[in-house]
Amino acid sequence: MSFRIAPSPHGHNQRTTSEMMRWVCYALVPGVLLQSFFFGPGIWFQIILALGTAVLAEMACTVARDRPAFSALRDNTAIVTAILLAISIPSLAPWWVIVIGTLFAIVVVKHVYGGMGQNLFNPAMAGYVLLLISFPVQMTNWLPVSTISEHSLTLWQTLHTIVFEYTPAGYSVEQLRAGIDGVTMATPLDTIKTELTRGYTLTEIYQGPEFSYFAGAGWQWINLGFLVGGLLLIQQRIISWHIPLGFLGGLCIPAFIAHIFAPDLMPGPIVHALSGATMLGAFFIATDPVSAATSNRGRVIFGLLIGFLIFVIRSWGGYPDAVAFAVLLANMCVPLIDRYTRPVVYGHGD
């Protein structure tokens, strides 16, 4: 009788990579729902566009690399990349923005580096940075959140705007951004940054319509949504707590100290934690295992580094938010972090 040959161990317990990635998608749901509530249904079109592009690009790349077309899709990582990128950009950005970004993320950042598991940089964030650098106008066109916005677009109007860059009535996104008093609204972080340079104090800035309870109106709820999803991932052991904790620590501790010394110039830790892409970054982006550090000690350092870089760039850098830049910079440090946090192997200690 002939029996089957297999390497040990025989049996397996962990969730597979594709299951893990599916869980990441589930965990994004609360944040995405809130985001679509505050910024309109555009985000769904962006996600659909990104998914389509990612799947096609992934298939094209695997075929070009002489592998079966569907082999690389099995692990679901391209889908996660696409969704993360889609929810990072303004929801009314023109269609070609997300297409270019996703193509770059999948083709250049992922496959040119050797495909799944070989990419040095977080593909979604590299795609985001490409877009931010190349199309600064489109990438900063965030609408004011729906609760304070003059306009709210229907599904059709949204689709029209994404495809033709104008609403059916001929308004540009730029015009839609104008608030009640005709003043263009920016994101809360952008507002803080520009108004501070004009000599206003934070107390005055927080009086603006962009802000409510703890941080930016709307943005705070979206961040809380991603926090909930992130906690779910930790509870499900899809991610470990080290990176998010390091991330939030690296951001909030310096922010807290700076806030004590200059309460009118430096936003406090809560504002930082609930603004921009903080929570999305902490739980979904920095925790991408491929481009993060591997040991637990290394992960804490990696998270701290990202958080601290975000604090530095938000406070003194050129851009209002900095999650993408901070993640990419920390990605570059990963080999170094891994090297110096390698645990002592059994029998090699003193």
Partner: peptide, 21 residues
């Protein structure tokens, strides 16, 4: 909207990589 990345230094690295490839 020109693809500014190409003009900026990172674009040089990426382009160089492609030429070498």
């Amino acid at each position: 909207y020109p693809l500014l990345l190409a003009i900026l230094p990172p674009g040089a690295f990426i382009g160089m990589g492609f030429i070498i490839a």
